[in-house]
Design a protein around this nucleic acid. Sequence first.
DNA 1: TTTGACCTTAAAGTATACTTCAAGGTGTAG
DNA 2: CTACACCTTGAAGTATACTTTAAGGTCAAA
Lengths: 138, 138
Amino acid sequence: MDGYRIGQLAETTDISTETIRYYEKIGLLPQPIRHPNGYRIYKHESMRRLKFISRAKSVGFTLNEISMLLSLNLSSKNKCSETEAQCREKIAVIDSKLHELVEIRRALELLVEHCAKTTNDGNACPILEYFETGEEIK
Amino acid sequence: MDGYRIGQLAETTDISTETIRYYEKIGLLPQPIRHPNGYRIYKHESMRRLKFISRAKSVGFTLNEISMLLSLNLSSKNKCSETEAQCREKIAVIDSKLHELVEIRRALELLVEHCAKTTNDGNACPILEYFETGEEIK
DNA sequence: TTTGACCTTAAAGTATACTTCAAGGTGTAG
DNA sequence: CTACACCTTGAAGTATACTTTAAGGTCAAA
């Protein structure tokens, strides 16, 4: 065989064989070729695709959104401007996600920095205190 | 009334009243005080909390993870080192999310840049072509 | 040739995060 | 006082994303 079987793909991508078959069923992963014995045979492309899916999932994209991201295609000059618009739209979504992450990260950073020198009454939520304001907790 | 009713909170946070009640039910949002007529009366704090929840959700944190983020508390010197460790853990998670987003963003940027000058056969996925490799599509 | 790790399918079950439904109380404006 | 927009509850329903179950075929090693 000159490809990966589903189990090998599962191991290298950290996505279970059941999930891989599920992704195929819902059309997120293209149907691979089959060995005469019926086994699925995957190419490197499928591995990249699965890794992309798991990365995109980790930053809050749904399987549907990921499917759309993966199908951003430049099939003709005509459709290209459409693709470009969709890309810009997705970039804007990503930028806002980046912004949220940076803010949450900053709140956590401040919390760590002041950790040693601060105590509180156990009721307030320092994360919210820091979030957006950056002001010290009492 | 010197607070917000659930409907006002819903409108300013873009989270439905049903969802707000759901968050309260699962303990993600503290129970607010009640007006003698039974209505929930919220303080500004609840608004900040809800906005934080929706931001954290948009970057792929589950309600459970968000709950943990919100409860990162400095209740004593003793627990502080524990909090600090948890913060650092969360920061590492955020950094990996930031990394994924930047990579996906870059792939989209490259796709837009080359949009005008490129066509392809309609089968390949340019996103995957660009992702990680950054090489031009043929 | 049998054991055991792999693969196949379809269907049912589960976790998370809501959303809708039903039945009713509250409060202000005309 | 009667609309009508708001609020209350608990329970049932839904969408998404898997996960498990059942029943069986494949294949390399002992």
